[in-house]
Amino acid sequence: MKTKLINSISLCVLLCAPAAGAAESGTLTKNDELKAEPFRDAKTLKVLAAGDKISIVSKEGGWYKIKAGKSSGWMRMLSVRKGDAKKASAATGLLALSSGRAATGKVVATTGVRGLNEEELQAASFNAQELQLAESYSVSKADSKKFAAKGKLVARPFDYLPEPK
């Protein structure tokens, strides 16, 4: 548990280099309990209110480890929405860094990467070679089972979710 946490933090630092140090910000979408551990039955430390600003430290399953003022604990991920008023600039920063784009969001011409807007998709012409290549990577059911077993993935039954009212 503890090592797992440390792992995911160092991973985040690695991946979220642009945001290193500064945890991501978030806002509560509804009143919910701050828990001592990432479980429903864990001790409730405090109830946070919809609209409260928090910072997200790490993620585990459906839970975020968060800081809210002086308290910290675990909050259901789906009670939080990432981001705040600084959304626009933060996103541009992330994008510019991860994709080598200019800050305007335009693709840097030299990369030769084409966009994928509707016009470009409409104008696209059939590429038989690429399609063949794509199909050449397909994986057999037996191989995918081996791959799953290597990752200790165990298939289990789970019903589809009903449409919420």
Binding site: R114, L116, E120, L121, A123, A124, S125, F126, N127, A128, E130, L131, A134
Partner: peptide, 8 residues
Amino acid sequence: SGNLLGAA
């Protein structure tokens, strides 16, 4: 898919 791959 062939058309999509023609775009990207």
